[in-house]
Amino acid sequence: MPALDVLAYAKLNLSLDVLEKRPDGYHEMRMVMQTVDLCDRLRLETGTGKPLSMRSNLGFLPADGRNLAAAAALRLAEDTGADWGGLSITLDKSIPVCAGLAGGSADAAAVLRGLNHLAGLHLPPERLEEIGTKVGSDVPYCVRGGTALAEGRGEVLTDLPPLPSCHVVLCKPAFSVPTPELFARLDGVRIRRRPDTAGLLSALAAGDLAGVARRMYNVFEDALPPRRAAEIQRLKTELIQQGALGACMSGTGSAVFGLFDSEGAARRALAALSQLCPTCFLARPVEKLV
């Protein structure tokens, strides 16, 4: 049976701005996204002669079309007429769930890239991104990866100069914030600050890591419940005190990350933050995937 191992990379929001509400009920977004090498691993096997099956190392994850990895395989087959002759997906998750790191979308994107190769479909990246929009808003970006400006619902992508070489310390607190709840809260609060997206883009163009880090911001931090906001701020403050050039929450949270220009400082910060938040990772930026 043909088989392929693929990696699904986490994403960070270097900035996240939510603009007006659209007629379709979604919000207009403007985000600068970055892929990092924290990743899930998937094994795809075709020709099993059985209906699609999925299993993972986390027993609470759905193993059917509610899982974005399985949904991506089903959507790819529907849109292309491909017949896998039976498909098995095995998922080994390392990206924390419900963290704002697009773990589910990254898995879906990895399935699209992997099956495109394994089945010899030869679909161009743009077609995979188009199919990805039908699976989830972050999936097109996760197909592409690298450093990109994401607009619309997140599916309108513009490649950006790569984030300068750096080290990332990621922390996932013990709580999660449901995305619909946070969008609802955002509609009812006064946003104190907007990301300086134009300045961030200029810093990327100049290869200015410190300039990027200074301009990172996520408007969802303004919409967090007070207790959660305090916990996020505590982690951001600790990252800065440990030498991060800047710190930010990713997506709708609750993961927080800091950018470091020194591996030694990043490792020391990782040790310190692990005392406050047991789920911490050291990561590096990843360039464009397709």
Rank of each mutant, 00 (worst) to 15 (best):
A71Q: 06
A265S: 14
V169C: 02
A63L: 05
E181T: 09
Q241K: 15
R55I: 01
D196T: 08
E78D: 14
S94A: 09
E287L: 11
L16C: 12
A82P: 05
I95W: 07
R30S: 11
G100Y: 10
R43I: 01
A82R: 08
T252C: 13
S15A: 15
A150D: 02
A150P: 05
E231F: 01
L87A: 06
D92M: 02
A247K: 06
R227F: 00
I191H: 01
A271G: 07
E231A: 14
Y26G: 08
K93M: 04
R127N: 02
R234Q: 12
R228A: 14
Q242F: 01
P195D: 04
R228H: 09
L38P: 05
A69I: 09
R30W: 03
E155K: 13
A210M: 06
A272D: 03
M249N: 06
F257W: 10
D64A: 02
H27D: 02
L209P: 09
K288L: 06
G246E: 03
L204S: 10
L276R: 12
G49D: 03
S274D: 04
H122Y: 10
T158Q: 14
L186E: 03
C171G: 14
A82L: 14
L276H: 13
L121S: 02
I131K: 11
A109L: 10
L149S: 11
V143M: 08
L74A: 13
R228P: 00
G86E: 06
L112I: 08
T133K: 14
L74Y: 05
E130T: 12
M33Q: 12
V6A: 02
S56W: 04
D138W: 12
N67W: 10
G146N: 08
